[in-house]
Every structure is written in C-alpha cells, then in structure tokens.
C-alpha cells in the first residue's frame, strides 16, 4: 500500500470517529466505564493531565503493559500518547498495534524543535494545534487528525474556545483574501502553502478536528461542536468528576445533540460535581501545556 493510500485510510478512520467523544483512561476499569458510556475511543495513559500538572516532573509515554491491558479489555479504538518529537516512543506504540498515536504536548516534549515525521509510520497520528499554521504543519508532517489543544487538565474551556476560534478566523481570512495575499499570509503565519490552498478551497481543515483541553461539562462539549469541531476529547473532565459514569454518558449525548438546547437541558441535570477548575492566569507561563509544539 502506498504512503498516500495509508494516510487516506488513517484520515478515514478519524472520519468514523466524528460526532463522538474520546476519553482519557488510566486503567482497565475506567476504560470499560468509558466504553459503556458510549466513547468512540479511549486514550490510554498513566496519569490524566490534571495529575501530571499537580505532580510535575517529566511525563513520558505510559508503560506499554498498561496500554496493552486496556487494548485487551475494550472493543473500541485505543489511542496512546508519545512525547513530541520522540520517534522511538512512537515506534514502540506502533509495534504495540494500537489504533492511533497522539503526539501530545500533555507529555514533556522530547524535542524542542522537531516533531515526528509521521509519514514514516503506518499508524495514524493525531496532533494538537492552537492555530491554522500549527494544524497545517502537523498535517504536512503526516498527521491524520488534529485536535485544537485547549489547556489540558484545567477544567477550563477558555483556551479550547480560543484555539478553535483562531483556526476558524484564519480559515475565513484565507478564504476571503485575494490570491496575491495568500503567500504573504502563509509566510507570516507559518502555513505550508499547498495545504493553505486546500483549506482556502474547502473552507475547513482537510482532516477531522476534535476539540480538547479543559472540557468538563456537556455544555462545554456542545459549545465545541457549535464552533465547528467534529468531536471532542475529554481528559481529566470525566474521571476527576464526582460521578464519572453519568458524566461520561451525558457528554456523549451532548456531542450528538449539540444543537438541541432542550435536550442539552435534560442531559445536564443532576450530574454531581464537575472536576475542579483552574484559572489559566494562575498557571505560570512555563507550565502551560498548550504552548508546547512548534
């Protein structure tokens, strides 16, 4: 199979995840709760972002035995995180035959200059982005799916909103500007030119884009759908809440019914305490995960 055919198949798997919720899980029990709630995939990792934030230190790829146990326990796709630029962690995850690798800023970057050349892999990658340039650079490197980053582990949706709004605004700018301005816009904003032309023609990213980072309630998830995301990642938001199973099910429903306020009202009732939230301004600049990635 050619590299392009493989990338098409990988983009198409993400297409099948549209309208769904991908949940962070740290053990088999949580993975089963996520699957029972209707998650379309699980992200297997040792610590959810809010714990990584609290405990500090270097966050690395999870122990593959833990990922393998989760893979054996559920029938839905399993994703796992490799550090930005950590080619070998990605090779190990590919050898484990999971379904998707997240080259993630939630882990401590292994390379402060280069991301992984994802075209060298058969396995699909999802990567984070804060703006159109970052999204298209990752796609140019071979990412088959994008997630607008948000600020993971905060329970605060403000950064996720900022990032999808930025992608949307830059997409509209790209579409409305005269052709002679496109190259200059690409230069200023770090957009690969050929992909920028594609976005200009399509009016959106050429791959599936999920929201991530700070989503804690069904309303947060529906807001991301309203802003044009194809689906939602929920990290700490579920298993750091008072009643994970109920909240997980409610968030799944909110992504399907995002444009039905009466239904969202019903879904949002009596879910117990959400995860505790953090003000972004209280997080020191050097501890903000979204800023990682280049």
């Amino acid at each position: 199979m050619t590299t392009q055919d493989r990338q098409t198949l990988n983009i198409q798997l993400a297409q099948m995840l549209k309208g769904g919720v991908i949940m962070d899980v740290t053990n088999v029990e949580q993975a089963k709760i996520a699957e029972d709630a209707g998650a379309v995939a699980v992200m297997a990792l040792e610590r959810v972002p809010s714990d990584i934030r609290k405990q500090g230190g270097v966050a690395r790829m999870s122990d593959p035995s833990m990922i393998a146990a989760i893979k054996a326990a559920v029938s839905i796709p399993v994703m796992a995180k490799a550090r930005i630029g950590h080619i070998v962690e990605a090779q190990i995850l590919e050898a484990l035959k999971i379904d998707y690798i997240d080259e993630s800023e939630v882990l401590t970057p292994a390379d402060e200059e280069c991301h992984i050349d994802k075209t060298q892999f058969s396995i699909p990658f999802v990567c984070g982005a804060r703006n159109l340039g970052e999204a298209l650079r990752r796609i140019a490197e071979g990412a088959a799916m994008i997630r607008t980053k948000g600020e993971a582990g905060t329970g605060n949706v403000v950064e996720a909103v900022r990032h999808i709004r930025t992608v949307n605004r830059e997409t509209r700018q790209l579409q409305s500007m005269p052709m002679e301005e496109v190259m200059s816009f690409c230069k200023t904003n770090g957009l690969p030119y050929e992909l920028a032309l594609k976005v200009r023609a399509l009016g959106r990213l050429p791959v599936v884009n999920f929201a991530a980072g700070g989503i804690a309630t069904p309303a947060d998830a529906a807001l991301q759908m309203l802003l044009g995301c194809d689906g939602v990642f929920v990290g700490s938001g579920i298993f750091k809440s008072a009643e994970p199973a109920r909240r997980a099910k409610a968030i799944v429903q909110s992504v399907t019914h995002w444009n039905e306020p009466a239904k969202l009202l019903e879904i949002s009732m009596g879910l117990g305490e959400a995860m505790p939230g953090l003000e972004i301004s209280d997080i020191p600049e050097n501890e903000r995960m979204a800023a990682r990635g280049w």
Binding site: K198, L202, G203, R204, L226, L227, G228
Partner: peptide
C-alpha cells in the same frame, strides 16, 4: 476526491 466528505462536514462555526 479524498476531501469530498468535507463539503458537508462541520464548518467553522459563528
């Protein structure tokens, strides 16, 4: 084309 699905998929909202 490979991107045909994007015609009817989610658009940048608002």
């Amino acid at each position: 084309s490979r991107e045909s699905w994007t015609k009817l998929a989610a658009r940048p909202g608002r």
